[in-house]
Design a protein around this nucleic acid. Structure first.
Lengths: 340, 340
DNA sequence: TTGTAAGCGTTATCAT
DNA sequence: ATGATAACGCTTACAA
């Protein structure tokens, strides 16, 4: 490992002083455009890059964003829905010169709270991809005034960008009524620990009533988990408790929907011939499944990007007044799990 | 944001000097156990944590590992196979007090090579999850002597942990011969840009010959991409070019296998009744697909952990002589896409 | 056993 | 327009 060149070396090599180099590096102070060019050219030539720890130490800006990705919900990097939002967030902020650092509860030998971690790392901002609303540490962060955004949860003081869950449920119900021409629709709801699932369930109840669907409480069942297995078990439960088979089942997420389909298949129920299924999210696998899943597509790329823009705005222009909540429209994608 | 307490504050508050505080923090030098206890207790009470940038600047150790996750292959965080290895790597190193930082080509306003990035961030080591073997930047890293491990590629000087591809192909072929009792097996291979895919194809040819399978060159087809769509197209091509339908198809990866199944289904070929399919990887979705996929399971958790252990060993005990390549055994998982 | 002081590589405030 | 110099918060000889 060759010795790292410092701003000091550059200076002597160019017969200047460190201060001057620093000025051109930071586009600050007065430097003649002649020396500026010379320094810039030399720096590029020798491939010099400032040492970030020194810069951080001095300047208080770290160009680092802390990422909260709660693993208690058993969804880590592996969960395609959240990780693809994160991916898009990451690309955006990297382009702006920021980097991501996962917030962990442990640093070296010390255990610490989210807030302590943020103080220690001096992150410029925090992005909550998935968080536990009951986590005291999250509240501490908000109270501390560190810029923060989320694509998952609502908390006062927390800027959030989410898909329009109500609209999503509304368009799937309209699709059921107007295109599928069905009236008996059941729902496999997600765990109520997630705000999004709660919203979707509320909207379902509302529109089922507004549209005069023949849906009763026995047509509503809760999946005990986020994923495939939850949907699988829940739908078997649903079919057991229901007097008449529903014509259509709405699932709270695609993961759950795929479990629902598999559960139904395991009971020799054909999709979409016997029962039609509609999901929510449009995960990558939805179109590959057999039958391909009709679902409400969330724009994950846009979710991540919007959150990124929002956070950088919060960091770099704290004086701007911006909306606390941004809602993004969703879209119905018609595939094989429903049939006109 | 309350002002951060420094080692200096702690010292004056305790009527000691910064040096002493540092010593107890680093378990170094001589400190009476009485003061040590006192300092430790106080630190915990006020929630003090050392500022990492200052520590890094001084000590040259950053407790940061750079992660190379090439995105050219269109597989980002979203790809479940690699991201779950990374997840397991991450958990392990975090427990040891390290953190991960994605290596990007851009830092602030400067574009730089992998190597420059590593120098700049002063990472303690590098983990290549997925890398492009032709990338000059990777070679630079190895030459520089920064400790590096990979779970994907082979390069002299690069420590690597991989699954035993040859064993995987062998046991699936033995399974075909001894359990399925079939002789005509085709293969949908993966793009040869990946070493793993090359190995699997070589092993396939070898065992097809050794086992006297009735497999000819026309039974071998290459998927032009890593994923589902590649498998889908490739198998349709295969069925077109082949005189006799194969009895079993081996796919180079699960993603490809699922595409193969869907492709076959689209041609009204029933699985496993008409053709049986075997994958490789055991991604999360393999068991949820219809039909559930018989496959060779790689132990992703162990892959990530082993790589993590290896890298930390390289970092902390550079004098240890350790094997450059570690090969992990794989296992056959029998599901619905094959039938005895 | 504890204190002192010199750096680590920057940035920023003064002088020049 | 450029040069000196004092921080930033920590580690680590070395001195007391």
């Amino acid at each position: 490992m060759t010795k790292k060149r410092t701003i000091y070396d550059i200076a002597t090599e160019l017969e200047l002083t460190p201060g001057t180099i620093s000025k051109v590096l930071n586009h600050t102070g007065n430097v003649s455009s002649k020396t500026r060019e010379r320094v810039l050219a030399y720096i590029k030539q020798v491939g010099y890059v400032p040492t970030s720890s020194a810069r951080m130490l001095k300047s208080k800006r770290t160009y680092t964003i802390g990422v909260v990705f709660t693993e208690e919900s058993a969804i880590g990097l592996e969960h395609s829905f959240f990780s693809s939002i994160l991916q898009s967030f990451k690309s955006y902020v990297e382009n702006e010169g920021y980097e991501l650092s996962f917030i962990v509860r442990k640093l070296g030998k010390n255990h610490l709270t989210y807030y302590e971690w943020c103080m220690n790392k001096r992150v410029d901002g925090v992005y909550i991809v998935v968080g536990d609303i009951n986590d005291q540490g999250l509240h501490e962060i908000l109270e501390s005034g560190i810029p923060a955004v989320s694509t998952d949860m609502f908390l006062t003081g927390l800027h959030t960008v989410v898909s329009d869950n109500d609209q999503g449920i509304r368009i799937s119900m309209e699709y059921v009524r107007d295109v599928l021409k069905k009236k008996h629709v059941a729902v496999v709801a997600g765990p109520v620990t997630s705000k999004a699932f709660v919203e979707r369930l509320i909207s379902f109840r509302k529109y089922a009533k507004d549209f005069n669907f023949s849906t009763s409480e026995e047509d509503i069942v809760l999946s005990e988990s986020f994923g495939f297995t939850g949907g699988f078990n829940a739908v078997r439960q649903l079919m057991k408790q229901v007097k008449n088979k529903p014509e259509v089942i709405l699932a709270a997420s695609d993961d759950i929907a795929l479990g629902v389909i598999k559960g139904l298949t395991s009971m020799s129920i054909k999709i979409p011939d016997d029962i039609q299924v509609i999901g929510f999210d449009d995960i990558a696998f939805a179109k590959h499944f057999t039958p391909a899943l009709t679902t409400i597509a969330q724009d994950r790329k846009l979710l991540g990007e919007t959150a990124a823009k929002m956070l950088i705005n919060l960091i770099e222009s704290p004086e701007d007044e911006i909306d606390e909540i941004i809602t993004l429209p969703v879209q119905l994608v018609e595939r094989e799990s429903t049939k006109r």
